[in-house]
């Protein structure tokens, strides 16, 4: 059944979580490329046969014509699937640049084929050029800003801590109004929690 393998590539794309990638399926990909070559060969053979029989290729409608048409359309369908596969993966790869940064973690690199790795690098560069031309970093500030200060409750006795130009006594259960950046280290260690009034 023609184009079934190509559909497999698209099914993989579809089954994947949005924003994620599966490993580049080079086996199926290559099979589809091979199929294209076969269709082309068959197509050529049928056209040649018609020419040898002195039939007008443009107007003749015999079984060879329809055979050629099927090969042409199957090739087109394979091409569209291959292009869709690469193009949609490229879209996800571009999103990594925004979500993760210019360097991809190993788990993601493993899923890209050689050309995709190169694509990521080149596209990353293009973004970097724009950012440097404009002199404004667009990879930060992805969510709306909040008050830089937050209200926190101390969960464990921490003691005197120097923050900026003054010191604070972080005793258990005490409440403080601190800079988010100062509080983060304590919050991530479970020593403090943010709380709403």
């Amino acid at each position: 059944m023609y184009a079934r393998r190509a559909s497999q590539l698209l099914k993989e794309l579809d089954a994947c979580e949005p924003g994620q990638l599966v490993v580049f399926n080079s086996d199926v990909f290559d099979q589809v490329i091979r199929e294209c070559g076969e269709h082309n060969a068959q197509f050529q053979a049928l056209i040649r046969k018609m020419v040898e029989q002195n039939l007008d290729i443009e107007t003749t409608r015999n079984e060879d014509h329809y055979g050629a048409a099927i090969h042409h359309l199957s090739l087109l369908r394979n091409k569209r699937c291959l292009m869709a596969y690469m193009y949609n993966r490229a879209e996800t790869i571009r999103s990594f640049r925004w979500k993760i940064g210019p360097v991809l973690p190993h788990e993601i690199q493993e899923k890209l084929n050689f050309s995709e790795k190169e694509y990521f690098r080149s596209h990353s560069s293009a973004i970097k050029s724009y950012i440097s031309e404009m002199d404004i970093d667009l990879t930060v500030d992805m969510v709306p800003p909040k008050d830089p200060y937050i209200q926190v409750r101390v969960l464990e006795d921490i003691g005197e801590v120097s923050l900026g130009d003054h010191s604070v006594s972080l005793t258990k259960n005490s409440l403080h109004f601190l800079r988010r950046t100062d509080a983060e280290q304590f919050i991530s260690q479970g020593l403090m929690e943010e709380f709403l009034e």
Partner: peptide
Amino acid sequence: RSTPVTDRGPRRDLRR
């Protein structure tokens, strides 16, 4: 590549 084949249907595209 002049196969007298008509493309049926609306434009195909790569839109997801």
